[in-house]
């Protein structure tokens, strides 16, 4: 899909995020909006998937380690046809296939249960390792939050990814700079992530995480013998003026008025 078409999908996914969280009266719009271009690009242009056969053993895998960005995930999966957009109305409701955080038992297209931060990257390492030892050409993608990188287990996973030479694994880190309690740099500074990831043995690409061409270039760059990391600088709440760069919109849903305003800003 070309950049123009992709940005149309991105706009639609942003509207989906607002609709879902608005309907539910809860959820995480900020970190969903920051991840839209990354997730849309991977799903539309890089993953081998068949929405009609979501458990195809030869599919590529995606792990949303920052599971609170579920509205973005569900938006992308629905746009691709894994399930109907009608499900959005039940997001976070009793018996819904769309749980507050991703649940592979309930949602077609979801490969792991995530949301408890720090665990998804290790699961992705296991998937990539499992593909390698069985001689499969499966590619595995994981999307992490920057606040999430404060979890020690993330670094255990990074160590293992390099140790097992997982060049079929791409780790994307959504660097939106904010977490629940404030700026990541103030809460617990991550320091020089580029240097740290390189020191951990990754092939590192640092880009603007809303620039579809830059994302495409980073995802397409060939890599051999080591895992890839895309450090994507993003804006939390991207696309909705009053949500942008506000930690307060991490886990708060828009009210009716805010929802209308947001949707207006996101019109085609």
């Amino acid at each position: 899909m070309n950049t123009n078409e992709l940005s149309k999908v991105c706009r639609q996914v942003r509207r989906d995020i607002i609709e879902m969280t608005g309907n539910a009266g809860s959820g995480h719009p900020g970190g969903s909006l920051s991840a839209v271009e990354l997730m849309t690009s991977v799903f539309y242009n890089h993953m081998r998937l068949d929405p009609k056969n979501p458990t195809d053993p030869n599919r590529d895998r995606f792990v949303l380690s920052k599971g609170h960005a579920a509205p973005c995930y569900y938006g992308v999966l629905a746009e691709m046809g894994f399930f109907s957009r009608d499900e959005f109305a039940d997001f976070r409701q009793l018996h819904s296939i769309l749980q507050g955080h991703p649940d592979c038992k309930k949602t077609p297209g979801v490969d792991a249960a995530t949301g408890s931060l720090g665990q998804g990257c290790s699961i992705a390492v296991g998937m990539a390792l499992g593909a390698k030892i069985q001689g499969k050409d499966t590619r595995v993608y994981a999307l992490l939050g920057d606040g999430e990188c404060q979890e020690g287990q993330i670094w255990e996973a990074f160590m293992a990814a390099a140790h097992y030479k997982l060049d079929n694994l791409t780790v994307m880190i959504d660097l939106n700079g904010l977490q629940i309690d404030g700026a990541v740099a103030d809460v617990m500074n991550l320091g020089d992530m580029n240097a740290k990831l390189r020191a951990f043995g990754f092939d590192v690409h640092e880009i603007d995480g809303h620039d579809l061409d830059a994302i495409e270039e980073a995802l397409s760059a060939p890599v051999s013998g080591r895992p890839k990391c895309i450090l994507a600088h993003t804006v939390k709440g991207r696309g909705v003026s009053f949500m942008e760069n506000q930690a307060g919109w991490h886990g708060k849903a828009p009210n009716a008025e805010q929802r209308q305003q947001a949707l207006k800003e996101l019109e085609d």
């Binding site: 699961i123 992705a124 998937m127 030892i133 069985q134 287990q153 255990e156």
Partner: peptide
């Protein structure tokens, strides 16, 4: 088919989770 994950039990459990999704 043996993987020593080092002294990192949390990582080991989740790597096992990932391996299981690949039919192992």
């Amino acid at each position: 088919r043996f993987f020593d994950c080092g002294i990192a039990e949390a990582n080991m459990m989740n790597i096992a989770a990932g391996l299981s999704t690949m039919g192992l």
